[in-house]
């Protein structure tokens, strides 16, 4: 396809991916890769490279706002980045030796799980966690300024959280995704950090985790500028539009519907992977 037409099409697909990613809370990157490979026949490796670039852009942009508003816990984020960055490098190495059809299958399964997570109703946590001496020593704590007043919190189970973050880092590096769903699980359910702080802190970590693998992919030629620039601009535009629409739309119903669509895409990805088409 001529460069001009292809760029316009890629831009459009990226805007849609950014929009869906932001409305479902899955993030812009997870959907752009299947969209590029399944709809436009882009090689999985180029799609992963471009999606990593888009991911770093959107997460850095969102993190800037969360950090300014004091929602992010920089200490907890920085501590867990030790695990996610090492994981991301391992993941990027693994990606170099795993066949792309296998990668597509793993991608589809992770996407399917994330869609299920996004579509299911979140249960409020009732159990109160007690911080371990280790977490206390590292001052892995903070105050959440919620609508009902200030709630102090402290992270518990730092070792288990650290382990899950290493796994999230591997997936992130392997597939070029933010694996925000897994990061939020580690922070919110395992470490007992308030949900909004978990989301903001996970977002904060995604940029650094993404760079750890993107730097390796860059040298391998996965990041093609002709694809990366429209994908980055499109996803940024789409997620900005999503953030604008989010408070104005019936999110709960929409989230279910979008999660279903993403689930179908995930299954498509798995099927294509098994057929060896990706």
């Amino acid at each position: 396809m001529p460069a001009f037409e292809l760029t316009i099409v890629v831009l459009g697909v990226a805007v849609l991916a950014g929009l869906v990613g932001s409305l479902t809370g899955l993030g812009g990157g997870v959907i752009v890769t299947p969209a590029l490979t399944l709809l436009l026949g882009v090689d999985l490796r180029y799609a992963i490279g471009a999606s990593l670039v888009a991911l770093i852009a959107t997460s850095s942009g969102a993190a800037a706002t969360y950090v300014r508003d004091g929602l992010t816990n920089i200490r907890i984020g920085m501590f867990l980045e030790l695990a996610t960055t090492v994981g991301a490098i391992c993941g990027a190495m693994l990606a170099g030796i795993i066949p792309t059809s296998t990668l597509a299958i793993v991608f589809g399964m992770v996407l399917l799980y994330s869609a299920w997570q996004a579509g299911s109703v979140r249960r409020e946590r009732t159990k109160v966690f007690s911080p371990t001496p280790f977490a206390h020593r590292l001052r892995l704590s903070g105050v959440y300024h919620g609508e009902t007043g200030d709630t102090p919190y402290a992270a518990s189970h730092p070792a288990l959280g650290f382990g899950i973050m290493y796994g999230a880092g591997i997936l992130s590096g392997l597939l070029g995704i933010g694996s925000g769903a897994f990061k939020v699980i580690a922070l919110d359910r395992v470490m007992g950090v308030p949900f909004k702080v978990s989301t903001a802190t996970s977002n904060f970590m995604i940029g650094v985790t993404g760079v750890a693998s993107a730097a390796i992919y860059f040298g391998r030629g996965y990041i093609h500028p002709a694809l990366a620039f429209p994908v980055m601009l499109g996803v940024l535009g789409g997620s900005t539009l999503g953030a604008f629409l989010l408070p104005r739309l019936p999110v709960k119903q929409l989230r279910r519907g979008f999660a279903l669509v993403v689930g179908v895409v995930a299954i498509q990805m798995i099927v294509q992977g098994f057929r060896g088409h990706l």
Partner: peptide, 12 residues
């Protein structure tokens, strides 16, 4: 703008 672009083959 009129050059052909193909992302279907990975050149590394």
């Amino acid at each position: 703008g009129t050059d052909r672009l193909d992302f279907g083959t990975f050149l590394g």
